[in-house]
């Protein structure tokens, strides 16, 4: 499903110094796998996730999704992959503040040019799955953190991706809401054939995962199955 080989990411500091975000990452994640990425702060977890999600490009190395080499693709093609194959769940929810809940859920379907009625129906169904159907006309500013994250997860559900990437999806939540989201994530992982990669500091999530990948200073230092 996902294959990284020899991935390096070098950042340029404002003072001109170069720092390694990632060093020679080789990693394969198969279809239907559920992997957790763990590691200390600043170790390169988010950097890796951004490359997996095609939000950022590696400095060198090859990245393949479903056997297709990403480096060669045009903006149009990569956008289509972000649109159809991958869905991101962020720590900071990343909802559009001007749109209400259901319009936010619809967003990936809009760029898929799905007609209004169809996408409304799909978005509504997804909101039902996260239990927010009665909040569908609320703007994100009128929703709690947990509810906002549920909207973000509904957005992922509605887009029916092959890969779900989550960068500390429970990181900003208090313990009670964290448990709510955790249960929803369990449902996500149970979806047939879906590949899930989550960055987490949360040992409960890491223990749920079938595979744990430990990163430190831009290197994979451990990769084991639970």
């Amino acid at each position: 499903m996902i294959a990284l080989s020899g991935i390096n990411k070098i950042f340029k500091r404002p003072d001109g110094r170069q720092v390694f975000g990632l060093k020679d990452i080789n990693l394969e994640i198969g279809q239907g796998e559920f992997a957790a990425i763990v590691g200390p702060s600043g170790s390169g977890k988010s950097t890796l996730m951004n490359i997996l999600g095609c939000l950022d490009k590696p400095t060198s190395g090859q990245y393949k999704i479903k056997g297709q080499l990403i480096g060669d693709k045009s903006d149009k093609e990569i956008s289509a992959i972000r649109n159809k194959e991958i869905s991101f769940i962020f720590q900071s929810y990343n909802l559009l503040t001007k749109l209400n809940a259901i319009e936010n859920v619809e967003l990936p379907l809009v760029y898929r040019k799905i007609p209004l009625n169809t996408r409304r129906t799909e978005a509504y169904r997804a909101l039902c799955q996260v239990g927010l159907q009665d909040r569908m006309l609320y703007k994100p500013s009128h929703l709690s953190g947990g509810q906002q994250q549920r909207v973000a997860i509904a957005r992922t559900l509605a887009s029916k991706p092959s890969v779900i990437l989550g960068d500390e999806p429970t990181g900003a939540l208090d313990p009670a809401t964290r448990n709510e989201i955790l249960n929803i994530i369990k449902d996500l992982v149970a979806l047939k054939g879906i590949t899930v990669v989550l960055v987490t500091h949360d040992m409960d999530i890491a223990n749920m995962a079938k595979r744990v990948i430990k990163i430190s200073e831009g290197l994979i230092i451990e990769d084991y199955k639970n």
Partner: peptide, 16 residues
């Protein structure tokens, strides 16, 4: 900027 980033992450092309 943030809105642009979110839209792009959800699959918007540069042309969109």
């Amino acid at each position: 900027k943030r809105e642009i980033g979110i839209r792009r992450a959800c699959g918007a092309e540069r042309s969109h």
